[in-house]
């Protein structure tokens, strides 16, 4: 019987098959190299103990995408689009020991602020809190805020005023029954439903930095949800969160992920999902630890 490390190595080969000659990874088999899949492939490699030199081409491909202001966009030809990716890029640079690139990216993130809004009874949230938006000039949402918090914590800036306010913002956006969706907990007095992926990501960003009881319901939510979860993307993020929280369910959830990730194939092979699953299955904690 294969142990988890051997299983990881076998699955890693499937991902390396996606690597393009330029060193980058695409989202899908017939697409061009892109920042997010390349960044997650590097994080997966680090989680599985792949030697850094094996990923040098991919890291270099990422470094070449960094803009002068420290940001990274979703495509080199559109330098101002998709700059929320800077947070994931910063995390890769920090974990792979590229301090100069990491510092520039973190500097950008500190200045990258969401706008504030007054919702006046439509949405029950504190629109005055500043977090991170998906794009310049926009409001704050759960996922870009969570990734930015993870990057700031990894860089030692977990107590920066931006990080402190970002955590307050995430707690404010938590749905009353526990968990998060994209960042809107309530509309016209009705609670919205939590999502497993964003709940896991928010837990990863908050765990260890906020009182445990403030995220207790959310942890309970994913501890229940993983048992029936069919999305390998959500399950991978949930495994990362459960492991970070040292949940007793972690091993069971990882076993389920091993099985479920087999559906990532053909037209449904999104390499980000596959890489996140490998990050969860890897023995070396990288994201959120």
């Amino acid at each position: 019987m294969l142990n988890r490390e051997n299983i990881w190595k076998k699955k890693w080969l499937a991902l390396t098959g996606m690597r393009l000659p330029d060193g980058g990874y695409p989202y899908y088999i017939d697409a061009k190299s892109a920042v997010e899949p390349t960044a997650h492939a590097v994080l997966a490699a680090l989680a599985g103990g792949v030697p850094a030199e094996e990923m040098a081409g991919s890291i270099q491909w990422l470094i070449e995408r960094q803009n002068a202001d420290g940001s990274v966009s979703c495509a080199i030809e559109y330098p101002d689009q998709g700059i929320w990716l800077t947070a994931i890029y910063a995390l890769v640079m920090l974990k792979s020991g590229n301090q100069a690139q990491a510092s520039a990216a973190i500097g950008f993130l500190i200045d990258f602020r969401s706008i504030t809004l007054n919702f006046k009874g439509v949405n029950d949230l504190d629109g005055s809190l500043v977090g991170w938006p998906w794009a310049k000039g926009c409001f704050s949402w759960v996922e870009p805020t969570a990734w930015s918090l993870l990057a700031l914590s990894a860089s030692g800036k977990g107590n920066d005023p931006r990080a402190i306010e970002g955590r307050r913002l995430l707690l404010d956006r938590q749905i009353s029954g526990g968990g998060w969706n994209y960042g809107n907990k309530n509309v016209y007095g009705h609670d919205l439903l939590p999502f497993s992926d964003t709940t896991a990501l928010a837990i990863l960003a908050l765990h260890g930095n906020v009182p445990l009881d403030s995220i207790g319901l959310a942890i309970k939510y994913i501890e229940r949800d993983f048992l029936t979860q069919e999305s390998p993307y959500a399950l991978a993020l949930m495994c990362l969160a459960l492991r970070a929280c040292k949940s007793a369910c972690t091993d069971t959830a990882l076993n389920r992920l091993e099985t479920v990730m087999d559906v990532i194939q053909g037209e449904r092979f999104n390499s980000v999902h596959y890489s996140l699953a490998l990050q969860a299955l890897g023995t070396r904690g990288v994201v959120g630890e």
Binding site: A34, P133, A135, C138, W141, N184
Partner: peptide, 8 residues
């Protein structure tokens, strides 16, 4: 990846 979730 350009517009976010939601497309704010």
């Amino acid at each position: 990846i350009v517009y976010g979730w939601p497309k704010n």
